[in-house]
Amino acid sequence: MSSDTLGGPARAFAGRVLQFAISIFALIAVTFTIGRLLPTDPVGAIVGELASPEAYAAMRERLGLDQPVIWQFVSYLRDLVHGDLGFAAMTGRPVLDDLKIAFPATLELATLAIIISFILGVPLGLAAAFNRDTWIDHIARIISLVGHSIPVFWFGIVGLVVFYAWLQIAGGPGRVDVFYEGLVPPVTGMILIDSLLAGETAIFWNAVSHIILPASMLAYAAMAYITRMTRAFTLEQLNQDYVVAARAKGAGQARILMHHILPNITVQLVTILAISYGGLLEGAVVTEIVFSWPGLGQYMTSALLIGDMNAVVACTMVIGLMFMTLNFLSDIAYAFLDPRTGEG
């Protein structure tokens, strides 16, 4: 086999690609099981309880439920490849069309959250490591412990109560105030970008006031993780001889941090960036409910409650795909970003 001639890193890379492919396949198989095999009445779940017997029979045939399981799976795969995710009983539209609206909303929220969590988490982790066992370190530890332990949906509610109801400094639920709703033409589906594209600064700032609270609440758990990891990575570096050598050359704290430690932990930071991004997409599912955010999470949970399995399965698929891709990218970041695994 030619794989015997591959070097260590190349083989690890190939292994990871294979792993990724298997995961995707497993995701498809699991969603198939969840959507078609587990429910006692998958047809009813799709057409709804009030459907006529003809519609029921037609759907049963369309789903191929009279066929053997393997054949059903093959046709499920074929539909997926063609981007056919079926109809959502909930909205009466193709699931794909619903996702095209819901996904950008979630992406917007999660992206802003990851930016916030990184901007706060990395410096806090660095400060904690550089001031180990001082009050800064203790505060960072408490912040990250609480972040690991807090139910994100509840934190959202507390945020709404405090910042929206009491202090009135944040916009309420939804993406914009009601009277701004539907005014900007959707281009990217992300309201911050669309409103700017349309030149509607008033709507943009209104949208900012609405998104900042859910994004911050969502960011907190990710920030806790990022702080903890950054601190651990930095402490590991601070013990290295090269740091002593840099100090022996006369470099000060700031220079050590910026020129020596950060370049060494960049790859690790990219890795946790990807991992937390995946985690945020998940966290968004529950946060969206609290903030009436019209994203995947809200779409999925509404579908869950009425048993609209097509929609549930599609959301699982989309979030799972994002999650797996991000994890995959975080693993292969080493191969591309670290000079040590490069040409050497």
């Binding site: 792993q19 298997i22 995961s23 497993a26 995701l27 699991v30 969603t31 969840i34 959507g35 587990l38 429910p39 995946g278 997409l281 998940e282 599912v285 529950v286 999925m300 949970t301 579908a303 869950l304 048993g307 399995m309 549930v312 399965v313 959301c315 699982t316 979030i319 799972g320 999650f323 797996m324 994890n327």
Partner: peptide, 19 residues
């Protein structure tokens, strides 16, 4: 590793919905 690569909350949601 495959199971680890699943988003656990979303998967739990989907399972709970189906069951």
């Amino acid at each position: 590793d495959v199971v680890l690569s699943f988003p656990s909350l979303v998967l739990a949601l989907a399972f709970a919905a189906a069951l």
